[in-house]
Simulated assay, not measured.
Amino acid sequence: MLAPTRRVFLSGALALSIAPARAASTPLRVVASSLPHTEILEFVGEKLAPELPLKIIEISGDLRPNALLRDGDADANFFQHVPFLRSEEAAMGMRFAVVAAVHVEPLGLYSRRATSLAALPSGGAVALSNSVSNTGRGLSLLQANGLIRLRARDAGVDDIVENPKNFRFVEIAPPQLPRSLDDVALAVINGNYALEAGLEPARDALALEAAEGNPYANVLVTIEGLAKDSRVLRLGTLLTSAEVAGFIGHRYRGSVVPVRPS
């Protein structure tokens, strides 16, 4: 008999060969990154809904969770925000279904060379995500903190019109951003990768995005054919419950912020 929550770890070198699941009693296969997504799903499966069997597929490496969903190797995923999802849809030529907006992982500015933004050295390197949907987000955070000025919102590095500290910008893969801290003056790091690296965003970041009204909420996603699946809808309801909001608040202390309890 399957336990209510099972975790399977997959690296980019592995492939899935699991037949699509549809029956309500069949474990719902959810692809998730380790922090905070897998922990939140485990809380749901173990504490709130043991009657809803979840098979959590924890990912790392070069696996593309939306491709796994498209190919029928998973039923849902929980790792991304909507701007990233839309860029994936454009690249893949298909639409997915957003089931629920769960939490915000505020993007943060981190440094090992300065204890404040004012103390950042002139001419220093700033590491940004090379993900298109997060590059502009990072630049907007730098602008919000007075470090640069952009020509337009959601702009790229070429749209910087004021750079008083003459920062140099390097774009690297998001999972590598925490490792760049020893080599750059400042790194703009996604919340989940900061947590995985042992950072506590609410404590360690020199500046964080505001959570209220943030368009980068992480969402539960499925294919359109499963958008009304009872298991998927039940999970979406649980992920936006007051109980999950309380767990997020207690567990992550401001480093992850629930969108809203229902």
Rank of each mutant, 00 (worst) to 15 (best):
A118G: 05
A118R: 07
A119E: 15
A119F: 07
L120I: 10
S122N: 10
S122A: 14
S122G: 14
G123A: 08
G124N: 01
G124D: 04
G124H: 01
G124W: 02
A125R: 05
A125N: 06
A125E: 10
A125Y: 14
V126Q: 03
V126L: 02
V126K: 03
V126W: 01
A127L: 10
A127Y: 05
A127G: 13
A127C: 13
L128A: 05
L128C: 06
L128W: 02
S129A: 09
S131G: 11
S131R: 08
V132E: 09
V132P: 02
V132D: 03
V132G: 00
S133H: 13
S133T: 09
N134P: 00
N134V: 00
T135N: 01
T135R: 01
T135M: 12
G136D: 05
R137A: 07
R137G: 08
G138Y: 01
G138R: 01
G138F: 06
G138V: 08
G138H: 06
L139Y: 07
L139R: 09
L139Q: 13
L139G: 14
S140Y: 01
S140W: 02
S140V: 10
L141C: 04
L141T: 10
L141E: 12
L142C: 12
L142M: 15
Q143Y: 05
A144H: 07
A144V: 00
A144P: 00
N145P: 13
N145Y: 15
N145H: 15
N145T: 15
G146Y: 11
G146T: 15
G146Q: 13
G146N: 14
G146D: 14
L147Y: 04
I148G: 04
I148E: 03
I148V: 15
R149H: 09
R149N: 01
L150Y: 03
L150R: 02
R151N: 12
R151D: 15
R151Y: 00
R151V: 04
R151C: 00
